[in-house]
C-alpha cells in the first residue's frame, strides 16, 4: 500500500519545489528591506560549489559541507552588501547581476578547483548517503516494504521538508520580531525609519547577508540532490527565475514567494502532457498574472481578508 503510493517521480518534483521554496524565501528576505538583488544565483553557486568541493575533495561530511557552503555565501553576501548599500532599485539590481556573472566566470576559470565549464560530477547524494548510513545501522528499505530508490527519494524529501519548514518558521518569527519590523520600516521609507532611530545600515546588510546565506544553503542542497553542478546552472537565468518566484507569488508576505516557487516549479511538470506547448502556457500565465495582479498573487490584503474570514467563522 505504502510502497505503491511512494513514487520517486513525485518526490523528485516535490524535492525541487522545496529547494525552490528556500530560494524564494532567500529573495523575500532581501526584498523585505526593499533591496532588489539579482545576485542570488551567484550566492547559490557559492554554496553549491563550496559544499561540493568540501565533500568531494576534502571528504568532509555532508552536513559540514552544506553548513560551510551556506556560511561562506553569507560572508560573501556581507562583503557585497556593505559596498552596495548606497545603491537602490535598478542600480542595485545591475550591481548584483554583475556580481553573479563574476562568480559564474570565476567558476569557469578556476579550473583546478571547479573543473571549469565541464562541471563537478558524482557529488555525494543526500539520499544515497543517508540510506547508506541507515544500512550501516542494519536498517533496510525492504523492512518497511519499500524499494531502495523509493527510500532514497523519500528520505531526501522528508529531510528537505523539515529543513524548509524550519527556515519558514524562523523567518515568520523574525518578521514579527524587532528585526522584521525594522525591515518593514526600511522598505516603507528609509529616511523615516532612520529618523525613528532604526540603524538602517545594520538592518540592510543583515537582510542582504541573510538572503545570501539562505540562497547558499539552497545551492548546497541543490548540489547534493542533483549530484552534478556546472557554472551554467548559476547564470542570470537562475537569478531571474528566483526573482520571478517572489514577483509572481507576491513579495509582501513570506507566503507569496513560497507559493510562487511551488506553483512555478510544479507548473512545467503538470503541463508535461502538452509537451512542446508547456513553456508557451507558462509564459502566458506569467503575462496574465502580471496584468491582473502586479503586486503578486498573495499580498497583505489577501492574508488580512483570509484571517478576518477565519475570525468570523470562529465567532459564528
Amino acid at each position: 500500500m505504502l510502497a505503491e503510493l511512494i513514487n520517486p517521480y513525485y518526490l523528485q518534483v516535490l524535492s525541487f519545489i522545496l529547494i525552490n521554496i528556500i530560494l524564494g524565501v532567500s529573495i523575500y528576505i532581501t526584498l523585505s528591506t526593499g533591496q532588489l538583488s539579482l545576485g542570488h544565483a551567484g550566492f547559490m553557486g557559492i554554496g553549491a560549489y563550496a559544499s561540493a568541493i568540501l565533500t568531494l575533495d576534502y571528504h568532509m561530511p555532508l552536513v559540514v559541507g552544506i553548513v560551510v557552503g551556506a556560511i561562506l555565501a553569507g560572508i560573501v553576501g556581507l562583503c557585497i552588501g556593505i559596498p552596495t548599500l548606497r545603491l537602490q532599485g535598478v542600480y542595485l539590481a545591475i550591481a548584483t547581476l554583475g556580481f553573479g556573472e563574476v562568480i559564474r566566470v570565476l567558476f569557469i576559470n578556476l579550473e583546478g578547483l571547479t573543473k571549469g565549464a565541464v562541471g563537478i560530477s558524482s557529488i555525494p547524494h543526500i539520499g544515497r548517503e543517508l540510506v547508506k548510513g541507515l544500512q550501516d545501522f542494519g536498517f533496510k528499505a525492504s523492512m518497511i516494504g519499500l524499494k531502495n530508490n523509493q527510500l532514497i527519494s523519500l528520505s531526501v524529501f522528508l529531510l528537505l521538508l523539515i529543513i524548509t519548514l524550519l527556515i519558514i518558521a524562523f523567518f515568520i518569527r523574525q518578521t514579527n520580531s524587532r528585526v522584521g519590523r525594522a525591515f518593514a520600516a526600511i522598505k516603507m521609507d528609509e529616511r523615516a525609519a532612520e529618523a525613528m532611530g532604526v540603524n538602517i545600515t545594520y538592518y540592510k546588510v543583515l537582510a542582504f547577508a541573510q538572503g545570501a546565506m539562505v540562497a547558499g544553503f539552497a545551492g548546497a542542497l541543490f548540489a547534493h540532490v542533483t549530484a552534478y553542478i556546472s557554472p551554467a546552472d548559476f547564470s542570470y537565468h537562475r537569478a531571474v527565475e528566483i526573482l520571478i518566484f517572489a514577483i509572481f507569488g507576491g513579495s509582501e508576505v513570506i507566503w507569496g514567494p513560497i507559493f510562487g516557487a511551488a506553483f512555478l516549479t510544479a507548473m512545467p511538470e503538470i503541463l508535461r502532457e502538452v509537451n512542446e506547448y508547456r513553456y508557451m502556457i507558462y509564459g502566458v500565465l506569467l503575462v496574465v498574472m502580471m496584468a491582473f495582479r502586479p503586486q503578486g498573487l498573495i499580498d497583505t490584503q489577501m492574508i488580512y481578508k483570509l484571517k478576518q474570514r477565519r475570525k468570523k467563522k470562529g465567532v459564528s
Binding site: 520517486p8 517521480y9 525541487f16 530508490n149 527519494s153 542533483t226 552534478y228 546552472d233 512545467p268 508535461r272
Partner: peptide, 13 residues
C-alpha cells in the same frame, strides 16, 4: 538538469 531528472524519474517509476 532538474527537468531531465524529473522526467527520467517519471519514465522509470
Amino acid at each position: 538538469q532538474e527537468q531531465a531528472l524529473s522526467s527520467a524519474q517519471k519514465l522509470m517509476n
